[in-house]
């Protein structure tokens, strides 16, 4: 346990945050966020530390960490690419976005590149459905994506350093009909056939 420490400034922030709530444990999520922001992930030692601060057991902390999808129990890549896969995004080409990242990075959703640069995940609706398809990269949204924009983005990210305060979304111009259809090559024959009443 002694191994885990947080910088003084973070501890001060944490104590001030706890004081704003009627109950210490209520500060669980902000405190876990502070830890993940500092360390990149939440280790078992960190859970003990957080439990001590909040007056609850490490297992209670672990249950919370496991329940919420944004907390990482293991280190992730420098850039965490979370592509929305939910309906509005799939309707606008999300599969083409995931496919392009898979091809470019040689990893499947849930995996991290061997050099530790990128983690790829598929996530659920991020409230950017009108500017779909989209992804969240660390703390920033990229919206109205196309496979070409993915190529440029990956290149740009390799050269950049993550900044947790950089949160303003990048909203590209909406892909036109041609760019849209290029992302949507999937066959639809069964449905078309069905509409013509070709089934028994």
């Amino acid at each position: 346990m002694a191994a885990f420490t947080m910088p003084d400034e973070a501890v001060r922030w944490i104590e001030a945050t706890i004081a704003r709530y009627p109950d210490r444990q209520a500060a669980m999520l902000p405190v876990l966020w502070a830890v993940q922001r500092e360390k990149g992930w939440i280790s078992p030692d960190a859970m003990v530390w957080v439990g001590d601060r909040l007056g609850c057991s490490a297992s209670a902390v672990q249950a919370v960490v496991r329940f919420y999808t944004m907390f990482d129990e293991a280190p992730v890549g420098r850039w965490k690419l979370q592509v929305c896969r939910t309906l509005s995004c799939e309707l606008m080409g999300a599969r083409a976005i995931v496919d392009r990242i898979r091809e470019q990075l040689g990893i499947e959703p849930g995996e991290t590149t061997p050099d530790g640069e990128f983690t790829l995940q598929e996530v659920e609706c991020l409230a950017s459905c009108g500017t779909a398809p989209m992804l969240q990269c660390n703390f920033k949204f990229y919206e109205n994506l196309t496979p070409e924009r993915i190529d440029a983005l990956l290149e740009e990210l390799r050269a950049r350093t993550p900044d947790p305060d950089d949160v303003e979304p990048v909203i590209y111009e909406r892909p036109d009909a041609e760019a849209y259809h290029a992302m949507f090559p999937r066959a639809i024959e069964p449905a078309a056939g069905a509409r013509e009443g070709e089934v028994a």
């Binding site: 444990q25 209520a26 999520l29 902000p30 909040l54 609850c56 209670a60 919370v64 999808t69």
Partner: peptide, 24 residues
């Protein structure tokens, strides 16, 4: 306050649990 990724935290009583520092 801010969550950490759970649709069910949007359900009002799930939100109460979440805000109390528990699973939603």
């Amino acid at each position: 306050h801010y969550g950490a990724g759970a649709y069910i935290a949007g359900e009002e009583t799930g939100m109460l649990e979440s805000l109390e520092g528990k699973k939603a």
